[in-house]
């Protein structure tokens, strides 16, 4: 009888091919535009107070492209309403923002620039500000063959830079490609990651970023305040607490975790996730192994960041 049950369950679970793909090497982008985008990304000229840049909340050098704060601070130190997601590998996300309201990077880049608590600029402001700079005028002339800088070109350059922000060759990717081996604990961690069900949502190139999911499947997730979830857009009660599944790439560098930044460590977030999403309690040993696996997802610094601007 027991054996019957076991055989039964083999039939229940069908295992597919590898659910995670390595980050492509040499993802295509226009280098000239990307370098201009790099400069714009770093430049507080894009904020109304000349004090905040894209990079202020997307720390591409040491913050894994995300913000160390629970929420970000924009112009006049205004607080944002959600934890800043990483900009690294964002090109592989199927939608942008926590609630997926931007279809692509172009739509996304528009958001923070205009957001009154972030950079707080209009299109005209951006064009006017940049046109006062001799350097930008000559750069735009050189790249876009135009004497009048247009907002769409600014966005285009920034997006091109973001396309360059990929972190290939993580130890895990190289393991998948058969170039490098992982420690037993890390391999066990990956196996657990699949066995306990993390893989259900964290799959694909980005280990996430390809679906919207409800936080609190097996136990209701209680928020301290209102966060901009999918419900805030659709007003469908089914979508309460539905957010885009965040990528786990470079996850060790992007603390704090979750949309509300409530998990300070990887362990905290693994515990929270197993409780709310898996409806199970993992042993300490299991958690440690999974965390070890997660740490193999740190990729190389994007090549473009080594360029001088």
């Amino acid at each position: 009888m027991r054996y019957f049950v076991l055989t039964l369950f083999f039939g229940l679970t069908v295992f597919a091919k590898e659910p995670i793909s390595p980050i492509p090497l040499n993802a295509p982008y226009d280098k000239q535009k990307a370098l201009l985008g790099y400069r714009l990304f770093m430049d507080p000229i894009l904020s109304s107070t000349n004090s905040v840049a894209c990079a202020s909340c997307h720390d591409i050098f040491s913050g894994g492209g995300a913000d160390r704060n629970k929420v970000s601070f924009g112009v006049y130190n205004k607080k944002g309403n959600i934890q800043s997601p990483t900009v690294l590998n964002a090109r592989y996300n199927f939608k942008q923002f926590w609630n997926g309201r931007a279809q692509d990077l172009y739509q996304q880049a528009n958001g923070p620039i205009h957001n009154p608590v972030e950079l707080n600029m209009t299109n005209k402001d951006v064009e006017k500000e940049l046109s006062t700079s001799q350097l930008y005028r000559s750069l735009f002339l050189q790249i876009y063959k135009t004497n009048t800088i247009q907002f769409s070109q600014v966005i285009d350059a920034i997006v091109e830079f973001e396309k360059a922000l990929t972190t290939p060759n993580s130890r895990f990717d190289r393991y998948l490609r058969g170039e490098k081996s992982l420690s037993q604990d890390e391999i066990d961690g990956y196996t657990l990651f699949k066995q306990v069900g993390c893989i259900t949502c964290h799959n694909g190139i980005n280990l996430g970023g390809n679906s919207m999911q409800k936080i609190g499947l097996f136990e209701e997730y209680k928020n301290q305040k209102n966060y901009p979830d999918l419900y805030s857009i659709t007003h469908d009660p089914d979508y309460k607490n539905v957010f885009k599944v965040p990528t786990l790439r470079n996850i060790s560098q992007t603390a704090p975790y979750l949309h509300d930044g409530s998990a300070k460590t990887l362990k905290d977030s693994v515990i929270a996730m197993s409780r709310y999403q898996l409806g199970s309690t993992l042993s300490n040993q299991e958690i440690e192994k999974i965390v070890k696996f997660l740490k193999t997802l740190d990729g190389e610094t994007p090549k473009i960041l080594k360029e001088k601007i």
């Binding site: 049950v5 076991l6 369950f9 229940l12 679970t13 066995q195 306990v196 069900g197 259900t200 949502c201 679906s211 919207m212 999911q213 409800k214 499947l217 097996f218 089914d238 979508y239 539905v242 999403q277 898996l278 409806g279 199970s280």
Partner: peptide, 23 residues
């Protein structure tokens, strides 16, 4: 599809859980 993906995640995880726990 959106809703399916959400429920599918729960159902999958439940099956995974049950298959692990039954033993």
């Amino acid at each position: 599809i959106q809703k399916y993906l959400i429920i599918n995640a729960g159902i999958k995880n439940s099956f995974i859980f049950l298959s692990r726990e039954a033993s």
